[in-house]
Structures are given as structure tokens and as C-alpha cells.
């Protein structure tokens, strides 16, 4: 048996701000089966929840997965426990953006071609998700 390592501020905050309790997940992995972008992830969606259950906060904050998540809400739609993993992914992203790493992506990172072609909606969503 693996024992959770101590108290985790990210996880406590997540329970309040996302209204989700990772402990309710029974690891069926249906979320990972549903997720359209797992090929680019280093942790699968259900593994993210397992890490949350175990309090492995630092490992989660190093993972690429929350930044690959497209907030498509498919995992939440299929979860038999009615958990909203998209909200938990947002919590990990926000924890990084607000306190740790600062912005992940900004206007200076756009290529001239992107600036010309991307619809306004893409720019606004990109900045909202990767920038504070």
C-alpha cells in the first residue's frame, strides 16, 4: 500500500475551488480512454488523479499533461463517478501560473504567420489558459 505523503496545499485548494474530491476516483481510467490528446501526455488523465490522491504535488507540477489538456470536457462527460477532471487540470495550471512559474506563453511567442492567421478566439483562449 502506498501512503499519501503529508498535506498538500494544491490538493486542499483544489477541493474548494474546483468542487472536486480526487479521493472519489476509483481509477477505472475511462477518462484516459476518452481523452483525445493522451498521445502527447506524460501522465494519463487517470494517473493525474492518482497523483492527486497520493499528494504527489511536485511531480504533478512538473508534468506536461495539464498543458496538453484542451479543456474539451470529454473526461468529465464519461466519468462514472461524475468527477470533473477538466477542473482539476485547470487547478494544476493555475497553481503554476499564479505562484510558481509565471506565464507559459505570451504575445512575444507568436510567429508573424500565427498573428495574421489565428482567429481572435484562439488568441484570447491561448492567453487565458497559459498566461496570468
Amino acid at each position: 500500500m502506498i501512503i499519501a505523503t503529508g498535506k498538500s496545499s494544491l490538493i486542499d485548494e483544489m477541493k474548494v475551488q474546483s468542487g472536486q474530491n480526487p479521493a472519489e476516483c476509483y481509477q477505472c481510467a475511462k477518462c484516459s480512454a476518452a481523452c483525445p490528446v493522451t498521445a502527447a501526455m506524460d501522465l494519463l488523465p487517470h494517473q493525474v488523479i492518482r497523483y492527486l490522491q497520493l499528494g504527489l504535488e511536485e511531480d504533478l507540477l512538473k508534468s506536461k499533461t495539464p498543458w496538453i489538456c484542451a479543456s474539451c470536457f470529454t473526461c468529465a462527460a464519461r466519468c462514472p463517478r461524475d468527477l470533473d477532471l477538466a477542473r482539476m487540470m485547470e487547478g494544476i495550471r493555475l497553481s503554476m501560473l499564479r505562484r510558481r512559474e509565471g506565464n507559459k506563453f505570451g504575445p512575444a511567442d507568436l510567429t508573424p504567420e500565427q498573428l495574421e492567421k489565428l482567429p481572435q478566439q484562439a488568441l484570447v483562449s491561448g492567453f487565458r489558459k497559459y498566461n496570468k
Binding site: P36, V37, A70, D109, A122, S125, G126
Partner: peptide, 22 residues
């Protein structure tokens, strides 16, 4: 009803190309 990759086309275009291809 699958996701097209959404805003990943801004930061991770390769990922959006996979979703779009499907």
C-alpha cells in the same frame, strides 16, 4: 463530438493536427 484540439493550435500545433486528422 470529438475535440479539434481547441487552443492547442496556438501552442502545440502537432497535437491539434492529430485530433484534426482523426
Amino acid at each position: 463530438t470529438e475535440c479539434c484540439g481547441a487552443y492547442l493550435s496556438v501552442t502545440e500545433e502537432g497535437v491539434a493536427s492529430d485530433t484534426v486528422a482523426r
